Computed example of a mutant assay.
Amino acid sequence: MRYEFRVAGAVSEPLGEAFPELDRTPMPEHTLFYGGVTDEAHLYGLLMRFQSLGLSVIEMRQLPDRPT
């Protein structure tokens, strides 16, 4: 499964490094994190990590799988 997380504001490099399994793209008013999520436990763990670091997830969506 692939997911995209839209986080409010700019995310610093050190905070971004707390998510090594996700790619990151800064946008004008938010930051996009995206990448593979192995299972539901991993998904909830990512959400808890965002929260524990004070990052506000404003949108989350599952992305289509990449063609193999």
Score class of each variant (00 low, 15 high):
34 Y>I: 01
29 E>W: 04
64 P>H: 04
33 F>D: 04
23 D>Y: 07
21 E>F: 06
49 R>G: 12
2 R>P: 12
11 V>T: 08
5 F>Q: 00
30 H>L: 02
41 A>M: 03
46 L>F: 12
68 T>N: 10
44 Y>F: 14
12 S>Q: 06
32 L>R: 07
45 G>N: 11
30 H>S: 07
37 V>T: 00
20 P>Q: 05
35 G>R: 01
47 L>A: 09
60 M>A: 12
55 L>I: 04
24 R>D: 11
7 V>E: 01
19 F>Q: 08
29 E>N: 07
13 E>S: 06
48 M>G: 10
64 P>I: 02
33 F>M: 04
52 S>L: 13
22 L>S: 07
47 L>H: 08
51 Q>A: 14
6 R>F: 08
2 R>G: 01
44 Y>S: 08
24 R>E: 07
55 L>A: 08
62 Q>T: 15
15 L>P: 05
1 M>T: 14
67 P>E: 13
6 R>G: 00
26 P>L: 06
47 L>I: 08
29 E>A: 08
66 R>Q: 15
48 M>K: 14
59 E>F: 11
41 A>R: 07
35 G>D: 06
61 R>P: 01
52 S>R: 15
6 R>A: 06
14 P>I: 02
11 V>D: 02
3 Y>S: 05
46 L>P: 10
26 P>I: 02
54 G>S: 13
63 L>N: 03
46 L>Y: 13
65 D>M: 08
57 V>P: 14
22 L>P: 08
58 I>V: 15
45 G>H: 07
2 R>L: 07
38 T>I: 03
64 P>V: 04
51 Q>V: 01
52 S>N: 15
45 G>T: 12
37 V>E: 05
31 T>P: 02
2 R>D: 05
61 R>H: 13
2 R>K: 13
11 V>I: 13
18 A>F: 14
34 Y>G: 00
13 E>Y: 09
23 D>G: 08
66 R>K: 13
14 P>K: 00
38 T>Y: 02
3 Y>T: 09
26 P>T: 09
8 A>L: 11
60 M>I: 14
32 L>T: 01
42 H>P: 09
1 M>E: 12
38 T>W: 04
24 R>M: 15
2 R>E: 05
40 E>Q: 11
20 P>G: 08
29 E>I: 02
58 I>M: 13
4 E>D: 06
22 L>A: 05
51 Q>D: 14
29 E>P: 01
10 A>E: 13
64 P>F: 00
7 V>F: 03
42 H>K: 07
52 S>V: 15
16 G>Q: 09
62 Q>I: 14
